[in-house]
Structure formats: C-alpha cells, structure tokens
C-alpha cells in the first residue's frame, strides 16, 4: 500500500516538472539565431540539400563519431554476453517455399534500398544510420528465410573495422586539406542538388552506413544464434 503511494508521488512529481516545462513554452514562429545561421550559410558551405545531414556530418560531426563508437561498444558487449557455438539445432519444420522464393528477390531488393538510402543521404531523407538499419533488417530477413545460412562474423568484423578506419582517416584529412576535423570540402562541392555534390558527405555516409549496418547485423546475428553452455 505504502509502495503504491510512493509510486503515485513520484509520478505526480514528474508530472509537475513536465507541467512547469510546458507552461514556459510558447510556439515559435521563426527560427532561432543558430538555426538561422545553419539555414542561411549551410547550403553554401557544405553543398548539402538536406540540412539535417549537413548538421550531422559536418557541424556536429564529432557527435556522430561518438555515436558510432557507442554502437560499436554495444555490439561488442552483446557479443560478449551471447557467446555462440558452432552447430545449431535442426529446424523442426521446413520453412515455407513461398517465403524462401520471395526472400531470394526481397533480400537483394532490401540491400539495394538500404544503399539507395545512404547514397542519397544529402539529397533526400535518410542517411547512414537509416540505411544501416535497413541493411541489418535485410540480414534478419535472410536469417529468417534460411535458418541454416552462415552469417560470417569474420567478414562483418572486417567491413566494420575498415569502414570505421576510413571514416576517421577522412576526418583527419579535413584538418590538413580544409578547415578542420571532418570538414567536407576536401572534395569539390559540385552542382547543388546532384548526386556527386556536397564534397565528402556521400563518402562519409557510405562508410557510416556500412559500419552501422555491420554492427547491427552483428547484434541480430548474435541474438539469432544459440547460446553456448557455460
């Protein structure tokens, strides 16, 4: 009984804090000063049509580096907790023929769509993180349709480390050839709105996409495999 009362008190307290926050809020009708700077000089400085991408990859690029590092740590810890053994149980029941046939078309289609998402990150919504998540779902679909398929953890580790390394190398190149770490003008900015534009942003996003896709596929693969008996 006393426990319930404490719960309700905590909830009421949180509600009061929320209400205080909301009382001070009035809907804004024009951009703040920082946002105005990003909007007005962002397209010239970075050449990206998607301003969210411009903020993520160049202005706040260090945050993205940290985020990728956190994901890497998560994947490593999950791999530590879910150790695998080599052989798996035989499935009790055959996977439906319709699903396996459909998956043979849908898995390449999903991979292509994920690649489209992160290559066009500077022109349309999406980018490395979304594309990586879609590629990981493609791997999950593959594991569901072909349960005996081998997800090679070695290849995934290689892709992951090479793309992470290249991401940092491009960032360091920015210090020497342009204004600072992760500056995207080491390559020509190109025509605004075309695929080969915005300097190094598409290349950085390709590496981020591959890295995130590899990490999330690793998480899904470790969740899929059977646990080792310790």
């Amino acid at each position: 009984m006393i426990k319930k009362l404490i719960y309700i008190l905590v909830l009421v307290g949180a509600g009061i804090i929320m209400a205080q926050l909301f009382a001070g809020f009035s809907g804004s009708t024009e951009l703040s000063e920082t946002a105005r700077y990003y909007v007005e000089s962002g397209p010239e400085e970075t050449g990206a049509a998607n301003l969210v991408t411009a903020v993520i990859v160049t202005y706040r690029g260090l945050d993205t580096l940290g985020e990728v590092t956190i994901l890497f740590t998560v994947a490593a810890i999950i791999a530590f907790f879910m150790k695998t053994r080599e052989q798996r149980d035989k499935p009790k029941r055959r996977v439906s023929e319709i699903l396996t046939t459909g998956a043979r078309i849908l898995v390449p289609g999903t991979m292509l769509f994920g690649a489209y998402i992160f290559i066009n990150g500077h022109l349309s919504p999406g980018g490395g993180f979304q594309g990586g998540a879609i590629i990981a779902s493609g791997f999950a679909l593959m594991l569901l349709a072909f349960p005996q398929a081998n997800l090679s953890h070695k290849t995934i580790r290689w892709v992951e480390s090479i793309s992470g390394f290249s991401f940092v190398i491009i960032g360091v190149l920015g210090i020497f050839m342009a204004g600072g770490f992760l500056d995207n003008s080491i390559l020509p900015l190109g025509n605004f709105g075309s695929l080969f534009s915005a300097g190094a942003i598409p290349i950085i996003y390709i590496f981020i996409g591959l890295k995130v896709g590899a990490e999330l596929s690793n998480v899904v693969g470790h969740m899929h495999e059977k646990q080792k008996e310790i």
Binding site: R104, V107, P108, M111, L112, A115, I119, M142, L195
Partner: peptide, 14 residues
C-alpha cells in the same frame, strides 16, 4: 552508380 551497386549485390547475395 546504381548499375555498379546491383552487380555488387548480385555477386554477394545471389
């Protein structure tokens, strides 16, 4: 770029 990607994906997955 699309054609290159498709060739890569077919080699890898099909």
């Amino acid at each position: 770029p699309g054609m290159l990607l498709i060739v890569l994906i077919i080699v890898l997955f099909c």
